[in-house]
Deep mutational scan, measured.
Amino acid sequence: TEVDLHLGDITIKLKDVSEEIVKRAKELFKNGWSAEFVKKWIEEAVK
């Protein structure tokens, strides 16, 4: 499945990412993480 994760003005296309990771990524962004950091976190999380 593909998900578009909207973080501010940046959209990250996610492939084969669990709902849990998407939820967590949104929380991290809301908590002040930059979109770049969230993207890196996701990449690490799906390895």
Results as ranks from 00 to 15, higher is better:
24 R>F: 12
3 V>I: 14
6 H>C: 08
3 V>S: 09
41 W>T: 00
8 G>D: 06
12 I>L: 10
28 L>H: 05
12 I>N: 03
26 K>S: 08
8 G>R: 04
44 E>A: 10
32 G>L: 01
28 L>W: 04
39 K>D: 06
4 D>S: 13
7 L>R: 02
37 F>G: 12
16 D>Q: 06
39 K>P: 00
42 I>C: 02
45 A>D: 02
22 V>E: 03
42 I>V: 10
45 A>N: 08
20 E>C: 11
42 I>H: 00
33 W>A: 14
13 K>N: 13
17 V>K: 01
30 K>E: 15
5 L>M: 07
27 E>Y: 04
37 F>S: 15
7 L>A: 02
11 T>G: 06
1 T>H: 15
14 L>G: 03
39 K>Q: 15
41 W>R: 00
41 W>E: 00
40 K>A: 15
38 V>S: 00
44 E>R: 07
44 E>T: 10
14 L>T: 04
4 D>V: 14
39 K>R: 15
7 L>P: 02
3 V>Y: 09
44 E>F: 11
8 G>V: 04
39 K>H: 09
27 E>T: 05
23 K>P: 00
15 K>T: 14
20 E>W: 10
45 A>Q: 14
26 K>C: 11
44 E>D: 14
38 V>G: 00
37 F>L: 15
25 A>R: 00
16 D>P: 03
28 L>F: 07
39 K>T: 13
24 R>V: 11
30 K>Q: 14
42 I>L: 12
33 W>I: 08
16 D>Y: 07
38 V>K: 00
45 A>R: 07
43 E>S: 05
7 L>H: 03
24 R>I: 11
3 V>H: 11
45 A>H: 13
42 I>S: 00
20 E>N: 10
13 K>H: 14
17 V>R: 02
23 K>M: 14
19 E>S: 09
7 L>V: 05
22 V>C: 05
42 I>D: 00
13 K>Q: 12
13 K>R: 14
9 D>F: 05
4 D>Y: 07
13 K>F: 06
8 G>Q: 04
42 I>R: 00
33 W>V: 10
31 N>S: 12
29 F>P: 00
28 L>E: 01
7 L>F: 10
24 R>E: 11
18 S>P: 14
42 I>F: 04
45 A>T: 14
35 A>Y: 08
37 F>Y: 15
25 A>K: 00
16 D>H: 08
27 E>R: 04
46 V>A: 08
36 E>D: 14
18 S>T: 08
29 F>N: 01
33 W>G: 05
39 K>W: 09
46 V>S: 10
26 K>N: 10
40 K>W: 15
20 E>V: 09
43 E>F: 06
41 W>A: 01
17 V>G: 03
46 V>H: 06
5 L>F: 08
6 H>P: 08
35 A>D: 05
2 E>R: 09
9 D>L: 08
22 V>K: 04
44 E>C: 15
7 L>G: 02
10 I>F: 10
31 N>F: 07
10 I>E: 11
10 I>W: 05
33 W>N: 11
35 A>L: 08
20 E>P: 04
1 T>E: 13
1 T>V: 15
43 E>R: 02
24 R>H: 14
36 E>F: 02
22 V>L: 12
11 T>W: 02
21 I>D: 02
8 G>W: 03
18 S>L: 11
29 F>G: 01
41 W>V: 01
25 A>Q: 00
26 K>R: 12
28 L>A: 03
32 G>E: 02
29 F>Q: 01
4 D>E: 14
27 E>H: 06
7 L>N: 02
19 E>A: 11
4 D>T: 14
17 V>W: 06
26 K>D: 05
6 H>D: 11
29 F>Y: 15
13 K>E: 05
10 I>C: 07
36 E>V: 04
5 L>G: 02
27 E>Q: 09
42 I>P: 00
33 W>R: 09
14 L>W: 04
4 D>F: 07
7 L>I: 09
40 K>P: 00
26 K>M: 15
37 F>K: 15
8 G>K: 04
23 K>L: 15
37 F>N: 14
34 S>T: 14
10 I>N: 04
27 E>D: 12
32 G>T: 01
10 I>T: 12
25 A>T: 01
43 E>K: 05
41 W>K: 00
32 G>D: 02
9 D>E: 13
15 K>R: 14
6 H>N: 09
16 D>R: 04
41 W>C: 02
32 G>V: 01
22 V>T: 05
41 W>I: 02
14 L>N: 02
5 L>A: 03
25 A>F: 02
12 I>H: 03
42 I>Q: 00
41 W>F: 09
5 L>D: 02
44 E>N: 11
26 K>T: 10
39 K>C: 11
12 I>M: 06
1 T>R: 13
23 K>Y: 07
47 K>S: 12
28 L>R: 01
35 A>W: 11
40 K>N: 15
8 G>I: 04
6 H>Q: 12
33 W>E: 11
11 T>S: 10
38 V>R: 00
8 G>M: 04
32 G>C: 05
27 E>G: 03
23 K>W: 05
17 V>I: 09
38 V>C: 04
27 E>F: 04
12 I>K: 03
5 L>H: 03
10 I>D: 06
6 H>T: 14
39 K>E: 13
25 A>P: 00
43 E>L: 05
21 I>G: 00
44 E>S: 09
24 R>T: 12
38 V>E: 00
21 I>V: 09
24 R>K: 15
26 K>I: 15
20 E>M: 09
47 K>P: 03
35 A>I: 15
13 K>G: 08
9 D>V: 10
9 D>K: 10
2 E>F: 13
30 K>M: 12
39 K>F: 13
45 A>C: 13
24 R>A: 14
18 S>N: 13
22 V>H: 04
14 L>A: 03
4 D>R: 08
17 V>C: 05
14 L>F: 06
11 T>V: 15
19 E>G: 09
36 E>L: 04
24 R>N: 06
35 A>N: 04
42 I>N: 00
14 L>M: 07
46 V>P: 02
3 V>C: 13
29 F>C: 03
7 L>C: 06
19 E>D: 15
40 K>F: 10
42 I>K: 00
34 S>R: 04
4 D>L: 13
35 A>V: 14
1 T>P: 11
34 S>F: 06
39 K>V: 14
25 A>C: 03
32 G>Y: 01
12 I>S: 03
19 E>C: 08
16 D>T: 05
32 G>S: 01
14 L>K: 01
18 S>F: 08
28 L>S: 01
40 K>G: 13
39 K>I: 15
1 T>Q: 13
15 K>M: 14
8 G>N: 06
47 K>W: 02
30 K>W: 04
47 K>N: 12
47 K>Y: 04
28 L>C: 04
